[in-house]
Protein backbone atom coordinates (compact mmCIF):
# COMPACT_ATOMS: atom_id res chain seq x y z
CA UNK A 1 0.00 0.00 0.00
CA UNK A 2 1.69 3.14 -1.17
CA UNK A 3 1.27 6.31 0.77
CA UNK A 4 1.28 9.52 -1.05
CA UNK A 5 4.12 11.74 0.13
CA UNK A 6 3.13 14.75 -1.82
CA UNK A 7 1.06 16.26 0.91
CA UNK A 8 4.05 17.69 2.76
CA UNK A 9 5.72 19.26 -0.22
CA UNK A 10 3.07 21.07 -2.22
CA UNK A 11 0.31 22.12 0.09
CA UNK A 12 -1.62 24.50 -2.18
CA UNK A 13 -1.97 22.29 -5.30
CA UNK A 14 -2.39 19.22 -3.17
CA UNK A 15 -5.38 20.57 -1.39
CA UNK A 16 -6.91 21.33 -4.79
CA UNK A 17 -6.08 17.81 -5.98
CA UNK A 18 -7.45 16.38 -2.76
CA UNK A 19 -10.62 18.32 -3.13
CA UNK A 20 -11.00 17.18 -6.70
CA UNK A 21 -10.35 13.58 -5.68
CA UNK A 22 -12.85 13.91 -2.87
CA UNK A 23 -15.36 15.49 -5.16
CA UNK A 24 -14.94 12.63 -7.60
CA UNK A 25 -15.68 10.20 -4.84
CA UNK A 26 -18.69 12.16 -3.63
CA UNK A 27 -20.05 12.71 -7.11
CA UNK A 28 -19.35 9.20 -8.28
CA UNK A 29 -22.45 7.59 -6.81
CA UNK A 30 -24.65 10.15 -8.48
CA UNK A 31 -22.95 9.43 -11.73
CA UNK A 32 -23.52 5.74 -11.35
CA UNK A 33 -27.12 6.34 -10.49
CA UNK A 34 -27.92 8.82 -13.21
CA UNK A 35 -29.34 6.48 -15.87
CA UNK A 36 -31.55 4.82 -13.28
CA UNK A 37 -32.75 8.13 -11.87
CA UNK A 38 -33.47 9.62 -15.26
CA UNK A 39 -35.45 6.60 -16.40
CA UNK A 40 -37.28 6.55 -13.09
CA UNK A 41 -38.24 10.19 -13.33
CA UNK A 42 -39.57 9.79 -16.84
CA UNK A 43 -41.35 6.49 -16.60
CA UNK A 44 -42.24 6.07 -12.96
CA UNK A 45 -42.94 9.49 -11.55
CA UNK A 46 -45.40 10.56 -14.19
CA UNK A 47 -47.64 7.50 -13.80
CA UNK A 48 -47.64 8.05 -10.04
CA UNK A 49 -48.67 11.68 -10.48
CA UNK A 50 -51.24 10.68 -13.08
CA UNK A 51 -52.75 8.14 -10.71
CA UNK A 52 -52.84 10.77 -7.97
CA UNK A 53 -54.54 13.26 -10.26
CA UNK A 54 -56.95 10.66 -11.55
CA UNK A 55 -57.96 9.57 -8.09
CA UNK A 56 -59.80 12.84 -7.66
CA UNK A 57 -61.67 12.61 -10.93
CA UNK A 58 -64.35 10.50 -12.48
CA UNK A 59 -63.05 9.06 -15.73
CA UNK A 60 -64.03 6.43 -18.21
CA UNK A 61 -60.99 5.57 -20.34
CA UNK A 62 -62.85 4.85 -23.53
CA UNK A 63 -64.17 8.39 -23.55
CA UNK A 64 -60.77 9.92 -24.04
CA UNK A 65 -58.76 12.38 -22.03
CA UNK A 66 -61.16 15.25 -22.20
CA UNK A 67 -63.89 13.46 -20.33
CA UNK A 68 -62.73 13.81 -16.73
CA UNK A 69 -64.89 15.37 -14.04
CA UNK A 70 -63.57 16.48 -10.70
CA UNK A 71 -65.14 14.74 -7.73
CA UNK A 72 -62.82 15.45 -4.85
CA UNK A 73 -62.57 12.71 -2.26
CA UNK A 74 -65.57 10.77 -3.48
CA UNK A 75 -63.50 8.06 -5.11
CA UNK A 76 -61.57 7.49 -1.92
CA UNK A 77 -64.81 7.19 -0.04
CA UNK A 78 -66.00 4.54 -2.47
CA UNK A 79 -62.68 2.78 -2.40
CA UNK A 80 -62.56 2.56 1.37
CA UNK A 81 -66.17 1.51 1.84
CA UNK A 82 -65.96 -1.19 -0.79
CA UNK A 83 -66.25 -4.69 0.62
CA UNK A 84 -64.48 -6.26 -2.29
CA UNK A 85 -61.29 -4.29 -1.79
CA UNK A 86 -60.84 -5.75 1.67
CA UNK A 87 -61.77 -9.19 0.47
CA UNK A 88 -59.27 -9.01 -2.37
CA UNK A 89 -56.60 -7.69 -0.02
CA UNK A 90 -57.26 -10.57 2.33
CA UNK A 91 -57.13 -13.04 -0.55
CA UNK A 92 -53.89 -11.58 -1.83
CA UNK A 93 -52.19 -11.67 1.57
CA UNK A 94 -53.48 -15.14 2.35
CA UNK A 95 -52.27 -16.60 -0.92
CA UNK A 96 -49.04 -14.64 -0.74
CA UNK A 97 -48.19 -15.87 2.73
CA UNK A 98 -49.26 -19.42 1.99
CA UNK A 99 -47.22 -19.66 -1.18
CA UNK A 100 -44.35 -17.58 0.18
CA UNK A 101 -43.81 -19.64 3.29
CA UNK A 102 -44.14 -22.91 1.39
CA UNK A 103 -41.76 -21.70 -1.25
CA UNK A 104 -39.13 -20.69 1.25
CA UNK A 105 -39.42 -23.87 3.23
CA UNK A 106 -38.73 -25.75 0.04
CA UNK A 107 -36.28 -23.49 -1.75
CA UNK A 108 -33.81 -22.77 1.04
CA UNK A 109 -32.94 -26.39 1.85
CA UNK A 110 -33.16 -27.48 -1.76
CA UNK A 111 -30.75 -24.77 -2.83
CA UNK A 112 -28.40 -25.73 -0.03
CA UNK A 113 -28.42 -29.34 -1.11
CA UNK A 114 -27.81 -28.30 -4.68
CA UNK A 115 -24.97 -26.06 -3.68
CA UNK A 116 -23.13 -28.49 -1.43
CA UNK A 117 -24.05 -32.05 -2.23
CA UNK A 118 -25.04 -32.26 -5.82
CA UNK A 119 -22.14 -31.65 -8.10
CA UNK A 120 -22.94 -33.49 -11.23
CA UNK A 121 -26.23 -32.30 -12.58
CA UNK A 122 -26.47 -29.11 -10.62
CA UNK A 123 -27.01 -26.85 -13.60
CA UNK A 124 -29.47 -29.26 -15.09
CA UNK A 125 -31.60 -29.46 -11.98
CA UNK A 126 -31.48 -25.75 -11.34
CA UNK A 127 -32.43 -25.18 -14.94
CA UNK A 128 -35.34 -27.58 -14.70
CA UNK A 129 -36.64 -25.92 -11.54
CA UNK A 130 -36.27 -22.55 -13.17
CA UNK A 131 -38.39 -23.47 -16.17
CA UNK A 132 -41.78 -22.66 -14.66
CA UNK A 133 -40.65 -19.10 -14.08
CA UNK A 134 -39.95 -18.79 -17.75
CA UNK A 135 -43.30 -20.02 -18.97
CA UNK A 136 -45.81 -17.57 -20.23
CA UNK A 137 -48.56 -16.98 -17.69
CA UNK A 138 -51.30 -18.08 -20.02
CA UNK A 139 -49.65 -21.43 -20.64
CA UNK A 140 -49.21 -21.96 -16.89
CA UNK A 141 -52.81 -21.07 -16.25
CA UNK A 142 -54.10 -23.39 -18.95
CA UNK A 143 -52.02 -26.31 -17.78
CA UNK A 144 -53.10 -25.88 -14.19
CA UNK A 145 -56.75 -25.41 -15.08
CA UNK A 146 -56.58 -28.75 -16.78
CA UNK A 147 -54.80 -30.41 -13.89
CA UNK A 148 -57.28 -29.02 -11.37
CA UNK A 149 -60.24 -30.18 -13.44
CA UNK A 150 -63.02 -31.68 -11.38
CA UNK A 151 -63.85 -34.77 -13.37
CA UNK A 152 -60.87 -35.46 -15.55
CA UNK A 153 -58.10 -33.40 -14.03
CA UNK A 154 -54.75 -34.92 -13.21
CA UNK A 155 -54.90 -34.35 -9.47
CA UNK A 156 -58.28 -35.91 -8.95
CA UNK A 157 -57.37 -38.84 -11.19
CA UNK A 158 -54.22 -39.44 -9.18
CA UNK A 159 -56.11 -39.20 -5.92
CA UNK A 160 -58.65 -41.68 -7.17
CA UNK A 161 -55.89 -44.07 -8.23
CA UNK A 162 -54.14 -43.81 -4.88
CA UNK A 163 -57.44 -44.39 -3.18
CA UNK A 164 -57.79 -47.66 -5.01
CA UNK A 165 -54.36 -48.93 -4.10
CA UNK A 166 -54.41 -51.87 -1.66
CA UNK A 167 -52.53 -50.81 1.44
CA UNK A 168 -51.65 -47.17 1.04
CA UNK A 169 -55.14 -46.43 -0.16
CA UNK A 170 -56.85 -47.32 3.08
CA UNK A 171 -54.10 -45.84 5.24
CA UNK A 172 -53.45 -42.47 3.66
CA UNK A 173 -56.14 -41.88 1.08
CA UNK A 174 -59.26 -43.12 2.76
CA UNK A 175 -60.71 -39.63 2.70
CA UNK A 176 -60.84 -39.52 -1.08
CA UNK A 177 -64.38 -39.81 -2.36
CA UNK A 178 -64.41 -40.72 -6.05
CA UNK A 179 -68.11 -39.93 -6.22
CA UNK A 180 -67.53 -36.35 -5.17
CA UNK A 181 -64.19 -35.32 -6.58
CA UNK A 182 -62.61 -32.22 -5.15
CA UNK A 183 -63.64 -29.09 -6.96
CA UNK A 184 -60.29 -27.38 -6.76
CA UNK A 185 -61.26 -24.26 -8.58
CA UNK A 186 -64.90 -24.04 -7.62
CA UNK A 187 -65.15 -24.79 -3.91
CA UNK A 188 -64.50 -21.67 -1.92
CA UNK A 189 -62.32 -23.60 0.51
CA UNK A 190 -60.02 -24.88 -2.19
CA UNK A 191 -59.63 -21.91 -4.48
CA UNK A 192 -56.96 -20.10 -2.52
CA UNK A 193 -54.74 -23.14 -1.87
CA UNK A 194 -55.05 -24.14 -5.51
CA UNK A 195 -53.84 -20.78 -6.70
CA UNK A 196 -51.12 -20.75 -4.06
CA UNK A 197 -49.99 -24.16 -5.26
CA UNK A 198 -49.62 -22.81 -8.76
CA UNK A 199 -47.64 -19.85 -7.41
CA UNK A 200 -45.24 -22.17 -5.59
CA UNK A 201 -44.68 -24.22 -8.71
CA UNK A 202 -43.99 -21.14 -10.73
CA UNK A 203 -41.62 -19.26 -8.48
CA UNK A 204 -39.74 -21.66 -6.25
CA UNK A 205 -37.17 -22.35 -8.95
CA UNK A 206 -36.39 -18.67 -9.18
CA UNK A 207 -35.67 -18.61 -5.48
CA UNK A 208 -33.51 -21.69 -5.76
CA UNK A 209 -31.39 -19.96 -8.38
CA UNK A 210 -30.92 -16.91 -6.18
CA UNK A 211 -30.11 -18.92 -3.12
CA UNK A 212 -27.70 -21.21 -4.92
CA UNK A 213 -25.68 -18.26 -6.08
CA UNK A 214 -25.87 -16.95 -2.54
CA UNK A 215 -24.63 -20.17 -0.99
CA UNK A 216 -21.80 -20.42 -3.47
CA UNK A 217 -20.43 -17.09 -2.36
CA UNK A 218 -19.69 -18.37 1.09
CA UNK A 219 -15.97 -18.60 1.14
CA UNK A 220 -14.65 -22.09 1.51
CA UNK A 221 -12.36 -20.99 4.28
CA UNK A 222 -15.25 -20.29 6.60
CA UNK A 223 -16.74 -23.68 5.84
CA UNK A 224 -13.47 -25.46 6.42
CA UNK A 225 -12.96 -23.61 9.66
CA UNK A 226 -16.38 -24.72 10.80
CA UNK A 227 -15.69 -28.33 9.87
CA UNK A 228 -12.46 -28.27 11.82
CA UNK A 229 -14.48 -27.06 14.78
CA UNK A 230 -16.62 -30.15 14.50
CA UNK A 231 -19.62 -28.78 12.66
CA UNK A 232 -21.75 -31.46 11.04
CA UNK A 233 -24.06 -31.27 8.05
CA UNK A 234 -27.07 -29.74 9.69
CA UNK A 235 -25.01 -27.50 11.88
CA UNK A 236 -23.18 -26.17 8.88
CA UNK A 237 -26.46 -25.38 7.31
CA UNK A 238 -28.04 -23.74 10.30
CA UNK A 239 -25.13 -21.76 11.69
CA UNK A 240 -23.04 -20.90 8.67
CA UNK A 241 -24.99 -21.05 5.46
CA UNK A 242 -28.28 -19.60 6.61
CA UNK A 243 -26.95 -16.41 8.17
CA UNK A 244 -24.73 -15.79 5.17
CA UNK A 245 -27.62 -15.67 2.79
CA UNK A 246 -29.73 -13.47 4.98
CA UNK A 247 -29.64 -10.52 2.57
CA UNK A 248 -30.87 -12.86 -0.14
CA UNK A 249 -33.68 -14.15 2.03
CA UNK A 250 -34.65 -10.56 2.66
CA UNK A 251 -34.60 -9.93 -1.05
CA UNK A 252 -36.67 -12.98 -1.87
CA UNK A 253 -39.27 -12.25 0.77
CA UNK A 254 -39.57 -8.71 -0.55
CA UNK A 255 -40.02 -10.13 -3.99
CA UNK A 256 -42.63 -12.57 -2.73
CA UNK A 257 -44.56 -9.65 -1.34
CA UNK A 258 -44.41 -7.78 -4.60
CA UNK A 259 -45.16 -10.86 -6.63
CA UNK A 260 -48.20 -11.57 -4.52
CA UNK A 261 -49.46 -8.02 -4.87
CA UNK A 262 -49.04 -8.12 -8.62
CA UNK A 263 -50.47 -11.60 -9.09
CA UNK A 264 -52.99 -11.15 -11.82
CA UNK A 265 -52.68 -13.14 -15.02
CA UNK A 266 -52.89 -16.67 -13.70
CA UNK A 267 -55.90 -16.32 -11.41
CA UNK A 268 -57.51 -14.28 -14.16
CA UNK A 269 -57.24 -17.07 -16.69
CA UNK A 270 -57.99 -19.83 -14.19
CA UNK A 271 -60.94 -18.28 -12.39
CA UNK A 272 -62.30 -15.64 -14.68
CA UNK A 273 -62.19 -11.93 -14.19
CA UNK A 274 -64.30 -11.84 -11.06
CA UNK A 275 -62.07 -14.22 -9.17
CA UNK A 276 -64.21 -17.34 -9.03
CA UNK A 277 -66.92 -18.37 -6.60
CA UNK A 278 -67.63 -15.64 -4.13
CA UNK A 279 -64.54 -13.85 -5.43
CA UNK A 280 -62.41 -16.14 -3.32
CA UNK A 281 -59.52 -15.91 -5.73
CA UNK A 282 -59.75 -12.22 -6.51
CA UNK A 283 -56.37 -10.58 -5.97
CA UNK A 284 -55.94 -6.89 -5.45
CA UNK A 285 -54.40 -6.46 -8.90
CA UNK A 286 -57.30 -8.29 -10.50
CA UNK A 287 -59.76 -6.12 -8.67
CA UNK A 288 -58.04 -2.93 -9.75
CA UNK A 289 -58.04 -4.20 -13.31
CA UNK A 290 -61.72 -5.06 -12.97
CA UNK A 291 -62.69 -1.66 -11.64
CA UNK A 292 -60.42 0.42 -13.82
CA UNK A 293 -60.42 -1.43 -17.11
CA UNK A 294 -63.43 -3.69 -17.32
CA UNK A 295 -65.88 -1.48 -15.46
CA UNK A 296 -64.08 1.70 -16.49
CA UNK A 297 -64.23 3.47 -13.15
CA UNK A 298 -60.67 4.63 -13.50
CA UNK A 299 -60.87 7.25 -10.81
CA UNK A 300 -61.88 4.83 -8.10
CA UNK A 301 -59.26 2.36 -9.28
CA UNK A 302 -56.60 5.05 -8.91
CA UNK A 303 -57.88 5.89 -5.45
CA UNK A 304 -57.65 2.19 -4.62
CA UNK A 305 -54.06 2.05 -5.77
CA UNK A 306 -53.13 4.98 -3.50
CA UNK A 307 -54.96 3.42 -0.62
CA UNK A 308 -53.02 0.24 -1.30
CA UNK A 309 -49.81 2.19 -1.48
CA UNK A 310 -50.46 3.73 1.91
CA UNK A 311 -51.27 0.34 3.36
CA UNK A 312 -48.13 -1.21 1.93
CA UNK A 313 -46.07 1.74 3.02
CA UNK A 314 -47.07 1.17 6.60
CA UNK A 315 -46.46 -2.57 6.43
CA UNK A 316 -43.11 -2.15 4.69
CA UNK A 317 -42.11 0.51 7.14
CA UNK A 318 -42.65 -1.91 10.00
CA UNK A 319 -40.95 -4.70 8.06
CA UNK A 320 -37.86 -2.63 7.37
CA UNK A 321 -37.75 -1.36 10.90
CA UNK A 322 -37.69 -4.89 12.21
CA UNK A 323 -35.52 -6.62 9.65
CA UNK A 324 -34.11 -3.86 7.52
CA UNK A 325 -30.81 -3.25 9.18
CA UNK A 326 -29.83 -6.87 9.16
CA UNK A 327 -31.44 -7.62 5.85
CA UNK A 328 -29.82 -4.77 4.07
CA UNK A 329 -26.49 -5.64 5.58
CA UNK A 330 -25.80 -2.05 6.45
CA UNK A 331 -22.53 -1.54 8.20
Amino acid sequence: MTVSTHSNEMPAEQSWQNRWANMKVTLAPYGFLSPAIILFLIFNIFPLLFAAFMSFHLWKPSEGLGAMTFVGWENYYYAITDELIYKSLYNTIFMGVLSGVTMHLIAIPVAYILATYIKRFRNLFTGAFFMPFVTSTVAVALVFTNMYGENFGLFNSLLATFHEMPVIGSLLFFWVDPENPIRWLIDVAFIKPSIAGMQVWKFFGFQVVIYVSGYLTISSEIIEAAEVDGCTGFGKFWHIALPSIRPFIFFCITLNLIGALNMFEEPFVMLGKTGGTDSAGLTISMYMYLVGWVWEDFGTASAMSWFLFAFIGVVTGIYFLLFGKKGLGDS
Partner: peptide, 19 residues
Protein backbone atom coordinates in the same frame (compact mmCIF):
# COMPACT_ATOMS: atom_id res chain seq x y z
CA UNK B 1 -37.19 3.09 -5.56
CA UNK B 2 -38.28 0.32 -3.26
CA UNK B 3 -41.62 1.96 -2.61
CA UNK B 4 -42.41 2.27 -6.27
CA UNK B 5 -42.10 -1.48 -6.60
CA UNK B 6 -44.95 -1.94 -4.21
CA UNK B 7 -47.71 -0.53 -6.37
CA UNK B 8 -49.21 -2.90 -8.91
CA UNK B 9 -48.59 -1.55 -12.40
CA UNK B 10 -52.10 -2.42 -13.55
CA UNK B 11 -53.13 1.17 -13.88
CA UNK B 12 -49.90 2.70 -15.13
CA UNK B 13 -50.54 1.46 -18.62
CA UNK B 14 -52.44 4.54 -19.71
CA UNK B 15 -49.97 7.13 -18.38
CA UNK B 16 -47.18 5.03 -19.83
CA UNK B 17 -48.87 5.13 -23.22
CA UNK B 18 -49.24 8.87 -22.89
CA UNK B 19 -45.53 9.31 -22.23
Amino acid sequence: FLGSMMVPPVLSLIPFALI
